[in-house]
């Protein structure tokens, strides 16, 4: 590089430019507004920007809901539960909650009564269980089904599982995300953090490349958010279906031209915890609408 500088002033300029470019690029575009999401004419108000959790010091000052990065038509669908296409699946999940199934002759409601008893659950998921294993909400649901109901486990990506996680999530709508990252959760959190900054696949992309360094920027017509998960399960217009966190993770790593991980894998549980912790403080939005 020194040789270039001596030989040619234009190339020297280029080298200076190169140095500037080699610094990690920070997003140039903060959200224009950080208005709250006002649902059902004011019945529910969800903040879209909150101070970043302490562990993100140096990366983010504020964490933002993905809702801010969507177009106004998509945003509007989340403002009224009758317009929100995810809500029909919440109703189906509630029906399932009350349906007796399995050898034990029980429904979810037999032990837990009304589904509103699940209030608060979504805000702390994923969570380390009594045996010290990190479990996602799907794991807790299947544990109840197989042990207490003596019914079959639900498929992680199946409609019934997604309906149930949606129905349970909505009970916590508005509560700030508050996943534990210390104590027994610490090693899982560290594993997830390591994954977040790992550049996977032939495109060599880490979660952080898009969602930390470049949120607010555009990849073609796609407006990059901070990749927060407080809106999951999401009704995704592109798939016209509810989408779980692990399904989205799987798609992201596939899109790096990488070998992805399986939904329900330990790796994705760890990543789910770490990503959730980046959004600690943002309200549970589930079921949100994205595209």
């Amino acid at each position: 590089m020194t040789t270039t500088i001596r030989l040619n002033p234009r190339a020297a300029m280029a080298s200076v430019f190169a140095l500037v470019l080699s610094l990690p690029a920070m997003a140039e575009t903060e959200p224009e507004t950080t208005d709250p999401i006002v649902i059902n004419g004011g019945e529910i108000e969800l903040p879209t920007a909150v101070p970043a959790p302490d562990h993100l010091e140096g990366a983010f000052d504020q964490v933002y809901s993905g809702w801010l990065f969507r177009d106004s038509e998509t945003q509007a669908m989340q403002l009224d539960d009758f317009e929100n296409p995810g809500m029909i699946f919440v109703d189906q999940g509630i029906d399932d909650w009350n349906t007796i199934e399995g050898e034990a002759g029980k429904s979810c409601a037999s032990c837990h009564e009304g589904i509103e008893s699940m209030k608060g659950v979504r805000a702390v998921m994923p969570k380390v269980n009594a045996e010290g294993e990190l479990w996602s909400m799907e794991d807790y649901i299947n544990d109840c089904r197989t042990n207490r109901m003596q019914a079959e486990a639900l498929d992680w990506n199946g409609d019934r599982m997604k309906n149930m996680t949606a129905a349970i999530s909505v009970q916590s709508r508005g509560m700030p995300m508050d996943v534990a990252i210390d104590g027994p959760a610490k090693p899982y959190w560290e594993q997830g953090k390591e994954m977040y900054y790992t550049r996977y696949g032939q495109l060599e992309l880490a979660c952080a490349n898009c969602h930390e360094d470049h949120y607010g920027d555009w990849i073609r017509a796609d407006h990059l958010s901070q990749g927060m998960t407080n809106g999951f399960p999401v009704y995704r217009l592109k798939q016209a279906a509810l989408v779980s966190q692990h399904n989205r993770f799987r798609g992201c790593i596939r899109d790096t031209r990488g070998e992805t991980f399986a939904m329900g894998s330990d790796e994705f549980r760890a990543l789910e915890l770490y990503v959730a912790s980046r959004g600690n403080g943002l309200p549970v939005e589930g079921v949100s609408v994205r595209h």
Binding site: A25, G201, Q202, E204, C210, H214, R254, R257, G258, E259
Partner: peptide
């Protein structure tokens, strides 16, 4: 840089078969 290498064939973490996952 975030930019992928367009003429590179190895040295990847979890290399995939195109976009199949």
């Amino acid at each position: 840089s975030m930019m992928p290498g367009f003429y590179k064939s190895s040295g990847y973490i979890r290399p995939g078969d195109a976009f199949t996952g």
